[in-house]
């Protein structure tokens, strides 16, 4: 039973850890499928986390936080589109610029507004709950004492933030959008052969702007989840590489929703195990915390580098589309 409980706790943490990665990976999927390298997921997470937490605090409502967070990442995603689509800028350079801008802007504005060293005030103050709180599913309490089922249902499945459930619901939804709608068809086409899309009478630029709109919306959920749900506070650089992890999961998952989600779950699991094994003693030596914390990142590199083999990227990813010859 002890082992069962430990497993439940680890899996529970896995779902929580995977949630922002799933949102961000799905976000990245729309942009990369349309041919735009999205190394800027990191900055977009940070921006939406900051504006989400700020708005939630100001209005005293997590929903306003969600709205503001999503709006802010949409603005940044469209800025990214402006640089890469309208001005044919380099995707990686403009993406990095967005990340740097996000890191500096959130800390500076945060300090100016709240004077707490870049942090936003805690969202769980007094009686007002400006943060998202976990949801208890129906019958979770009643079933809690039933062996096995109680553990799985009440502990593992019930009791998460709404955004966790949304993340998992977004996976089939995004699959449907990408593979069964006109918009998805065009997004996939434009990442493979923009020339063909152009000759089919479709605007390449418009398709890419719309793809990045999807990116902005989805990645906003990731940021808001971190600040308005999990920690109930924004602190500088709280995205802590999650944007890059999501990008890795996306590539790992071969730019498809279900496999990308699986990769996110794997990364989430590694993170959960790492946290849980802090202080563990191995061969008489205490495992250094830093090493444990670094494990998911090391594994990402190893997995991407060697294990999964080649995954085929959208064909024109990273290439600006220039129509007229000069």
């Amino acid at each position: 039973m002890e082992l069962f409980n430990s497993i439940i706790v680890i899996l529970d943490a896995t779902l929580r850890n995977a949630t922002p990665l799933i949102f961000a990976a799905l976000a990245g999927m729309f942009s990369e499928r349309s041919g735009i390298v999205n190394i800027a997921l990191e900055g977009k997470i940070l921006i939406s986390a900051f504006f989400g937490a700020s708005a939630a605090y100001y209005f005293g409502s997590p929903w306003m936080g969600l709205l503001a967070g999503v709006l802010s990442s949409v603005v940044f995603a469209q800025l990214h589109a402006f640089a890469t689509v309208t001005h044919n800028g380099d995707h990686v350079v403009s993406g990095l610029a967005i990340n740097i801008l996000a890191a500096g802007l959130t800390a500076a504005v945060g300090n100016y507004w709240f004077s707490q060293g870049g942090n936003t005030p805690n969202l769980a103050f007094g009686d007002t709950q400006a943060r998202f709180t976990p949801i208890t599913l129906p019958f979770a309490d009643q079933l809690a004492d039933v062996p096995i089922i109680g553990g799985i249902y009440s502990e593992l499945i019930s009791g998460h933030y709404l955004l966790v459930y949304l993340a998992f619901a977004a996976v089939p939804l995004c699959w449907y959008i990408l593979f069964r709608t006109r918009f998805g068809l065009r997004v996939r086409a434009v990442g493979e052969n923009p020339h063909a899309v152009d000759t089919a009478g479709i605007s390449v630029a418009k398709t890419r702007y719309l793809a990045l709109l999807m990116t902005g919306i989805l990645v906003g959920f990731a940021g808001v989840y971190l600040s308005v749900a999990v920690t109930a506070q924004f602190s500088p650089n709280m995205s802590a590489g999650k944007g890059y992890m999501a990008l890795a999961a996306l590539i790992f998952g071969k730019w498809r929703p279900r496999t990308a989600m699986q990769a996110c779950l794997l990364f989430g699991l590694l993170e959960a195990i790492a946290i849980r094994s802090q202080g563990a003693v191995f061969l008489g030596v205490e495992v250094p915390v830093q090493l444990v914390e670094a494990t998911p990142y090391i594994l990402t590199v190893v997995l991407l580098g060697g294990f999964i083999g080649r995954s085929v990227a959208p064909k024109v990813i990273g290439e600006p589309y220039v129509k007229e010859r000069s």
Partner: peptide, 11 residues
């Protein structure tokens, strides 16, 4: 059908 789709779903 690319560019000549009828409606939002491609089915």
């Amino acid at each position: 059908i690319l560019g000549a789709e009828d409606g939002i779903a491609i089915e």
